[in-house]
Write a protein that binds this DNA or RNA. Structure first.
Lengths: 335, 335
DNA sequence: TTGTAAGCGTTATCAT
DNA sequence: ATGATAACGCTTACAA
């Protein structure tokens, strides 16, 4: 790879002049600029991001930290992030913490050691202990998806309370009154929020909903299956069930179908996230749409803003979910 | 972030001594080493990857280039790559070329400008024109998944001919003789290979299989749906169908089920890749297992070997696929 | 308008 | 065993 020196030599100017041309400075003679550009083209010169990053300037690099990457929601976040980042001229270093706080900490260290321009951060759980570490540096951070209210850190999150409410509202409007729910891990704040929204609306509609109606899953497919078995083992009969993500809803769907239970005629099933696979099922899955793309766009914007304005007012952007009705929900049979 | 200078100052030694301690050089007094380690701990000092990278040494960074990232096969590759890379002490910059050769070229440039230790590369199609560019540098490259035989570049690929053969063999053994196939884009070599293997085995079994039995898809879900419609519009009746990836097979499955066609009683459906979702369908999807994790492990090993041994003999590792029988295939009804 | 030189955080060479 | 110093490729005062 040719360096700025090679260009300078070939163009017969100093390196600073080349630097000026690269950085589109005004103070450079048109003819020298032409000569330099010519040399750049001849050598196919591309400035080193490494040197740029070392000098203190931006290295056009951001880090994305996710707690797992096989879960489809995070797959979406990863994809949109690299797409949006690319358009804004940034490369992305991706790290999967596998829900392990130690890996999380080590990976954040890696990012800091790379002098990244910012970090998009989706924490493992409420117990994450890396924020203060980042706080001590100048590196901007934006929390995505998983947050804690009390921390004054910029972020982009979903209105999870609303998500729960929408789910409950939909099922109530269809006429269900025996309703089950599968949550994600309850040490993650957003799961508690979703459940709160869900409960509140059921209460408004005078529908009985106690702890027996709730199964705490882990956001994975298998949780959906286990939940159905759990409820059946406990003789809890329901006509509708909401899972706090689509993966678990898919598990529910399969388990019910294999048991010969019809969806939605016997039981209505709904999920949340609106991952692509939901539409591919038979029946297709009713869900709550999570605007992942918008989240990534806003998050990167927030990152750039922070970088530029030294100190940004602690902004928390809240996105709104919305209901997507498909084939897996319907009126209860006996009504 | 503290620098090596800060450590040197606090420990009362020179930067070179600190460097020696960091790099576990033998030639350093035990007491000074202790002092330095103490200072490092006090300051929570972590060496900058950027400076290391600049100096010419490895920056512990590799690039991963995929042609698309929503396709589940690449999701697997991404996940396994970052996982394996992490374990070996590397960070990964991820780029999605969106099947666009221009983006591909620009992204490779980005990686070279970052002085990466190596590039894992899955090309857009046979037309990719970036290999010579990388070839001119010292940066090791390993091709994954998509290759061209003629190029003497190290890589890890699947035995795609075998994959096609296995699929055909399975359907033949079940007794099918009216068989359809949905391929990926035929300007990608591996699709042609898969088709060749498929055809050869059918021929061995004296099963008629001409161009009317083939539909060229694009690896996406929608292709599966379109293929079914295409075959039905052309009055081509078949009792079994193989799609060259699971996503298209899922499309086939849904379209058939919605039309009231039973799987596998009326038509057997099989895919390839063995993505997780295949097991979640009702019926679960028979597929050809693609050892993605092994591919990523081998690829990273190959990258590291190249980096160390200056010039590696051009090695092409070929992985073997295997059949996974599930519920979506069975004997033809009229037999 | 252009060039010189210092500095970013390392490692490597050469002295001591 | 340790310390100065040059070098990696770039940006940026400061000088000319």
């Amino acid at each position: 790879m040719p360096s700025i020196k090679d260009v300078a030599k070939l163009a017969g100017v100093s390196v600073s002049t080349v630097s000026r041309v690269i950085n589109e400075s005004e103070d450079v003679d048109e003819r020298t600029r032409a000569t330099v550009l010519d040399a750049i083209k001849k050598l196919d010169y591309k400035p080193s991001f490494v040197a740029k990053g070392l000098r203190g300037k931006s290295g056009n690099l951001i880090g994305l930290v996710v707690p797992e990457s096989m879960e489809h929601a995070f797959t979406s976040i990863i994809n949109y992030t690299i797409e949006v980042a690319y358009k804004k001229g940034f490369n992305v270093i991706l790290g999967n913490t596998h829900n392990d706080p130690d890996i999380e900490e080590k990976f954040i260290d890696d990012l800091l050691r790379r002098n990244v321009d910012g970090i998009l951060f989706s924490r493992v759980s409420d117990e994450s202990r890396v924020l203060h570490k980042i706080g001590k540096t100048k590196v901007p951070i934006v929390i995505i998806d998983r947050t804690l209210d009390k921390e004054g850190i910029p972020g982009v999150v979903l209105n999870n309370y609303k998500a729960g409410s929408l789910a409950a509202k939909h099922l109530c409007e269809l006429g269900h009154n025996k309703i089950a729910c599968i949550t994600g891990p309850l040490n993650i704040a957003l799961c508690r929020e979703r459940l709160r929204g869900f409960k509140d609306v059921l209460k408004e509609n005078n529908i009985e909903f106690n702890d027996d109606c709730v199964y705490e899953g882990n956001f994975k497919y298998i949780s959906g299956i286990e939940a159905v078995r759990h409820f059946r083992a406990n003789n809890f009969e329901f006509t509708a069930i909401w899972a706090q993500n689509d993966m678990m809803a898919l598990g529910v769907l399969r388990e019910l179908l294999l048991k010969g239970i019809r969806v939605p005629q016997d039981i209505s099933v709904m999920g949340m996230d609106d991952i692509g696979f939901g539409q591919m099922m038979v029946p297709s899955l009713t869900s709550i749409h999570y605007p992942f793309r918008e989240m990534c766009e806003k998050a990167i914007d927030l990152l750039i803003t922070q970088k530029e304005q030294e100190e940004v007012e602690n902004k928390m952007i809240v996105l709104e979910p919305n209901l997507v009705v498909r084939d897996s929900t319907g009126q209860p049979f006996h009504q």
